[in-house]
Design a protein around this nucleic acid. Sequence first.
DNA 1: GAAATTACTGACTATGAGTCATTAACGAGA
DNA 2: TCTCGTTAATGACTCATAGTCAGTAATTTC
Lengths: 230, 230
Amino acid sequence: MGIRERREREKDERREEIIGAAESVFFGKGLAEATMDDIAEAAELSKGTLYLYYRSKEDLYLAVTLKGMDIMEELFRKAISTGEPSIKRIYNLGEAYYEFFEKYRNFFRTFYFFESPQFHTQVSPEMLDACTGHDRKIWELVLTPIREAQDEGLLQSSLDPMEIGVMLWSNSNGLMRLIDRHADHWKDSLGVDLFSLMRKSNAFLLKAMMTEEGLKKFPTGTFEHAATGL
Amino acid sequence: MGIRERREREKDERREEIIGAAESVFFGKGLAEATMDDIAEAAELSKGTLYLYYRSKEDLYLAVTLKGMDIMEELFRKAISTGEPSIKRIYNLGEAYYEFFEKYRNFFRTFYFFESPQFHTQVSPEMLDACTGHDRKIWELVLTPIREAQDEGLLQSSLDPMEIGVMLWSNSNGLMRLIDRHADHWKDSLGVDLFSLMRKSNAFLLKAMMTEEGLKKFPTGTFEHAATGL
DNA sequence: GAAATTACTGACTATGAGTCATTAACGAGA
DNA sequence: TCTCGTTAATGACTCATAGTCAGTAATTTC
């Protein structure tokens, strides 16, 4: 019988609607200032109903984070399925990450919360698992072209692929955070362009991790027209 | 007359006592779970009194952060006043940063809040200024040996000293955060030692930013016995 | 020793997260 | 079409806690 299925579909839609409402409220006011009453009003539902779908305000916030991860995953997937050489696809990932940062800044910001367990006081273990699960899935994506580049002898095989990924990710992520909160200050009063700095440091790191052969085939700067300089 | 002065001294002492109480409560429960009543009890004062000294719970939290910055500044100051060569003192800074992370983990964690303006909803502009001011002071400290190393022709002079500092700092900071929340997971289930990874990536970056002359005098690994590998 | 200043108090207010008894809507079976 | 059971939704309520403020006590000044 299709009734059960319709009900489930409707429930899923409700879930999406709630996330949509939560998104607009959270993005407008931030986690702390947003109230469940605000979200209920935006969703045209009563507050009690929100709690039928999400255990706590923080769980709901992480539901928005999960949606952000979906978007990011999609961008990453596109970046690595171009059929280009592995090294180029690693560059693409850097571009995709920066694109996500630029275009989906609000989602990028929700990651701050996810990445600070400090602040998880009401998060349900289920929701946390869902997030870390999704996080790992994205990491798998990142590792694919890295492993390939190692197999092709372009990246040093003495390094763990995860190590390579983390170095590049951590570097980009740290600088994007800085850009997010202080870009103007750095540019105007210190004269430092953090964006090109990110390009530079990523290039430094990648260069240090490539093999002689890799550097011969793809000298630093090969993809410099690219957006992020990864 | 010394009465005014005595009163001021007493007020300062009170301030310190409150910070001490806040510290123990915040470190035990985290910002969100800690209540002003908890802190008042720990300080053996009424809640109202706390508000005579600090405008909000978040201001009080940042007061603890400021204390952490004091500690860090002290460690940094020691690190760069050894009379050693400039490059070595840059290494020392890396060590000092890691020492701060290890020994004063709780203070290190308070920086998460300071570094996420997202979460500043009740912070007074005065307190924020105090924090950013102190932050800059510490940056000045970091820049000293970097400028010196450039003057001596050991670090590329095409780079802005601030750029060099930010690259190294951002890299270390990002990885320490990762270590802070996931060291076990990374080590056990992924087989990646984040600490040595931090050493490696710092070395990569520094190497890329040194001059030929610098690398001749101080080849990578010169200070490898050092704690952080910066 | 009266008046003024300063430090402190804790009962009170306001707000907002989360709950739960109740109501409404829907569908199944007779 | 009438019941009865099930599921979805409601909103008034509780409870916790940040922040306030009128009042008290201690200290200083003259």
